[in-house]
Design a protein around this nucleic acid. Structure first.
Length: 810
RNA sequence: GCCGGGAUGGCGGAAUAGGCAGACGCAGAGGACUUAAAAUCCUCCGGGCAGGGAUGCUCGUACCGGUUCGAGUCCGGUUCCCGGCACCA
């Protein structure tokens, strides 16, 4: 085979990358036409692209390239989520300042992205660790602060001893740090929070409107964890206080036989102050607090508790209920206290059983053989021994009792959420400083907007021990109060990097503006039409970004209250049956693959191997297959074809071309099924191999031009090369996306499957618009059908035009 | 335990609205070209049974049952795998 039969992948890819770069082909321009905002989650600049990155960016690139050709003004930007611990840890180890290593990593990864042929608008690149960006992260913090959505509070927080910083609830997975898998411990600290719980209901209710995978929506739904119930107040006359509990089962109130507080509950100390066994109680609490969250919340953990010596008054029966403290009550959910209803709650049952507390049945099941001796009955039923509510079905009673309590001033209907406020303080250097000054006279004072950014000091020591390096930067730390001008000191915590990434998609709309973003740009570009990213951010980045957008919406800074209209959550790339990771030693370098078979082959295989949302196994043979396909297309297009003309072949070609055009268009646009789009291109290529030399030269060029354009989103380099070889001057990526015509999609004749009792027995080719009764007649007259129906009774004939006929016989 | 997603040839997967299961590719087999190999091009490729053969019959989409003229697809139940939540009151 001559060299004409194969193209030099490396040379071709390099050539067009240079041209695209010089022509700035992918920059988005003024707000003119219909827009399309295509975004992929920006990476942390770790230094190298891994296969996960290759997958996300390839997926997004196909969508962006298609929309561009389809006539949209496409915004397809890229940037760097550049703050974060790895750079700081590297600084501790090697002494290289975080900014230096970060910038070097960005540089390298950008080169790799260009090698992949990704169509990013690099003129809009943002880096969250640069002052031009984080000054606005700080400005947005102040916006939250002004709206009372940022606050400081002391409490037991999640602390990762290895990362030496606190973590948000969303960043603790099974009691372990999401980054380093260390066991997270509790620590009492004063920290900054964003009031995401204020938005719980809205974050929940607008989930429905999102074109997102159910999987992700469900995760957010569960995370927010709405519970509808009631608050019930129990008076404690002994100390003249009230204990408030939250319950989803107010209907079981008459079955309450005790009250339990979390060991950390603020009323514990006053309650036991004059109790003879108070020291014993204190020892119990101290012992419980030592346990980590994992131990404490594990299902099989033994329930342990202790009596406080005090009693509370049942709000309706005025009965005296003993108050206990127990490990199974969590201080930060609901009110940190519960009423114990052993007969109708499994946890209370096992607790009451252990400590021999009374078990009082107040809900009777419809079918009364439930065994109360061994477990709690949690199902539906009607109330017994419940005062005026006796006889009510328990669902009605929930509401009735909540209302009665409200009338008495003893509580009422309440809703509780599992989600907690977002803890954003981090005791680390490499993040956006929280723009707050602590003044001995004025307290916490926000840094005035015109004094932003609060720059990270450059000469700091990275010891890797104790507090944030910022606390040691004396010159930076000491300042004056913006209000009273007395000496004051700066907040030394920096912000969680998820704050940076909660608004970057706004910055891309006006990346050089002297404000976080420009209203007119945001009005034009938002929302993001297609967002591509990993499932691991389901309750992290994706939830935080939704929250940010709702706050910005309330501040009238954005016209949308949801940032990402459509979400494509891509699956993992698996190798040798496992998720790729350095520790498992099963990583693959995209660079080597590109060197050997080219970016186009890597992209095509990645897209072809599986639908975007599924995990798939990387296979070298698969890349070879993609490479063979691309070379096959090349040969088809550049090899001169000629032969005797055939009208039949010509019709077959046009049908194949228009069918493929429709398939590829719909698969990209609606279904995001790039695997089947590529298989359609393979089919078209195969079809053209059969017939291409039977049409004239001009038609060949035109047909091959369609194939080339359909290929362009997937294999941009080869498509560009072929497009030029076909005689075009302009880029294929700004060429017009092919249209398909209905007339080529329909055949004059169709093959009908002839079934007997649902089994295909024969086939028949008939005119497309044959009448059902004619079709029926032809079917019954058909030879095979005749033979097989002979001597049997025809019960029914179902005739589906264009598809099949089913003869039902007995 | 609760919620969500899934199970189709040797493998990845296709079947878009209940209508011909297995598109396309990988691996494999055979053939053409070649001194030969590679590359390329062509053909075959779920199981069983029958036939010399074209072919025909039959089973088959995790399992059991149902609805329907017709089920990979819908309904009820079961098993297994993946993900989330979980002493959340």
């Amino acid at each position: 085979m001559s060299s004409l039969d194969r193209y030099n992948v490396q040379a071709v890819e390099k050539k067009w990358q240079t041209v695209w770069n010089e022509e700035r082909l992918y920059e988005a321009h003024a707000a003119s036409r219909k827009k399309f905002y295509c975004l992929e989650q920006f990476p942390y600049p770790s230094g190298h692209l891994h296969m996960g990155h290759v997958r996300v960016y390839t997926l997004g690139d196909v969508i962006a390239r298609y929309r561009r050709m389809a006539g949209y003004n496409v915004l397809h930007p890229m940037g760097w989520d550049a703050f974060g611990m790895p750079a700081e840890n590297a600084a501790i180890k090697s002494g290289i300042p975080p900014r230096t290593s970060t910038m070097a990593n960005i540089d390298y990864m950008k080169t790799q992205m260009k090698q992949m042929g990704l169509s990013f608008d690099w003129s809009r690149e943002v880096t969250t660790s640069e002052p031009e960006y984080y000054r606005f992260t700080q400005e947005l913090f102040l916006l939250f602060y002004d709206r009372q959505l940022a606050y400081r509070k002391e409490g037991a927080v999640n602390w990762c001893p290895s990362c030496e910083t606190v973590l948000a609830n969303e960043q603790v997975e099974d009691g372990l740090c999401w980054r380093c898998d260390s066991v997270v411990v509790k620590k009492d600290l004063t920290q900054w929070y964003l009031r995401i719980t204020d938005y719980a209901e809205r974050l929940l209710s607008s989930l429905d409107s999102l074109d997102w995978p159910q999987e992700i929506k469900t995760q957010q739904f569960n995370w927010i964890g709405k519970s509808v119930g009631a608050e019930i107040i129990f008076d404690v006359p002994q100390i003249d206080q009230r204990i408030s509990v939250f319950t989803t089962r107010p209907d079981t109130l008459y079955g309450a036989s005790y009250i339990v507080l979390a060991p950390e509950h603020p009323l514990v100390e006053p309650l036991i102050a004059s109790y003879v066994h108070r020291d014993e109680v204190r020892r119990f609490i101290a012992a419980e607090r030592v346990h980590s969250d994992i131990e404490r919340t594990a299902e099989n953990t033994e329930k342990r508790g202790i009596f406080t010596g005090s009693y509370a008054v049942h709000p309706l029966t005025k009965e005296r209920l003993p108050i206990w403290i127990a490990n199974y009550v969590l201080v930060d959910y609901g009110t940190g206290a519960v009423m114990g209803v052993p007969a109708h709650d499994l946890r209370d049952f096992s607790y009451a059983h252990k400590y021999q507390l009374p078990i009082k049945i107040v809900v009777s099941p419809e079918n009364p053989d439930a065994d109360f001796g061994h477990s709690a009955y949690t199902g539906p039923g009607f109330l017994i021994e419940s005062g005026p509510f006796t006889g009510m079905d328990n669902e009605t009673a929930k509401e009735a009792i909540a209302k009665a309590l409200q009338a008495e001033g003893k509580g009422g209907p309440r809703i509780s959420y599992r989600m907690r406020d977002w803890l954003i303080s981090r005791q680390r250097y490499w993040g956006a400083p929280i723009p707050i000054i602590h003044c001995p006279h004025c307290g916490a004072v926000p840094v005035p907007k015109d004094q932003l950014p609060v720059l990270l000091p450059e000469n700091v020591e990275f010891t890797g021990q104790g507090a944030s390096p910022l606390a040691g930067a004396k010159d930076w730390l000491e300042t004056s109060c913006p209000q009273c001008h007395h000496p004051a000191y700066r907040e030394t915590d920096t912000m969680d990097t998820f704050v940076d990434s909660s608004w970057y998609y706004y910055r891309f709309t006006s990346p050089h503006a002297d404000e976080p973003f420009v209203k007119t740009d945001v009005d034009y570009w938002m929302p993001v039409d297609e967002y591509v990213g990993g499932k691991e951010h389901a309750v992290l980045h994706l939830l935080y970004s939704r929250f940010f957008t709702k706050v910005l919406y309330d501040a009238k800074l954005t016209p949308v209250d949801e940032p990402f209209k459509r979400l494509l959550a891509q699956g993992m790339v698996v190798y040798h049956g496992q998720k790729m990771s350095k520790s498992k030693g099963n990583t693959l370098s995209p660079e080597n693959i590109m060197k050997e078979r080219g970016a186009d082959a890597m992209r095509v295989f990645m897209l072809f191997a599986a639908p975007p949302d599924k995990d798939f196994e990387w296979s070298q043979e698969g890349v070879e297959g993609a490479y063979r396909f691309l070379q096959r297309v090349y040969r088809l297009v550049v090899k001169p074809h000629s032969g005797p003309l055939s009208e039949d072949a010509r019709v077959r070609i046009y049908k194949a071309v228009h069918r493929a055009t429709r398939k590829v268009t719909e698969d990209i646009r609606e279904r995001r099924a790039f695997n089947t789009a590529i298989s359609a291109l393979m089919e078209l290529t195969n079809a053209l191999y059969q017939d291409i030399d039977a049409i004239n030269k001009e038609e060949q060029t035109q047909i091959l031009g369609v194939l080339t354009r359909l290929l362009a989103p997937f294999a941009p380099h080869l498509a560009e090369e072929l497009w030029h070889q076909l005689g075009h001057e302009e880029s294929v990526h700004t060429a017009e996306w092919p249209q398909y015509e209905e007339k080529w999609l329909e055949d004059d004749e169709v093959t009908i499957a002839l079934q007997i009792n649902g089994k295909v027995r024969s086939r028949l080719t008939v005119p497309k618009d044959i009448r059902p009764d004619q079709l029926r007649e032809l079917t019954l007259a058909e030879e095979k059908i005749q033979v097989l129906t002979q001597g049997r009774t025809i019960l029914k004939v179902i005739s589906v035009p264009g598809s099949l006929v089913n003869v039902v016989v007995r």
